[in-house]
């Protein structure tokens, strides 16, 4: 059998890659996708532990995460559309009106 550690390590690696993407990409939509990647990594960890402990509670939680991710994606993309129309660019560095 696959040791649980492997799954969790993979989850950590994916999470890290998600962070890298989040920090380095300049397109708003791509950054959003990096967030989805991170959520997926966490899902993997949940399922892994759920299987290791023999309880299905982790998988229920995964379902909730997916639901929330869906809702978040819907609203978030709506905001992205508005922002993009407003600033006429998809570059996150143009969203800088908070500059003091």
């Amino acid at each position: 059998m696959v040791p649980t550690n492997y799954y969790v390590l993979l989850s950590a690696i994916l999470f890290g890659l998600g962070i890298v993407a989040f920090v380095f990409k300049r397109n708003i939509i791509t950054i959003f996708m990096a967030i989805e990647l991170m959520l997926n990594a966490v899902n993997l960890a949940f399922v892994a532990f759920s299987q290791a402990l023999g309880k299905p509670d982790g998988e229920v939680f995964v379902l909730f995460v997916i639901i929330v991710a869906a809702a978040e994606a819907a609203v978030g993309l709506g905001i992205i559309i508005l922002t993009a129309r407003n600033r006429r660019s998809l570059n996150v560095e143009n969203v800088n009106l908070l500059k003091l």
Binding site: I19, V23, V92, E93, N96, K99, L100
Partner: peptide
């Protein structure tokens, strides 16, 4: 400290990190 508020989203992301 004011200079942290650069208005740059990516910097904010790094601060969150």
């Amino acid at each position: 400290v004011r200079q942290v508020q650069s208005g740059n989203t990516r910097s904010y992301a790094v601060w969150v990190l």
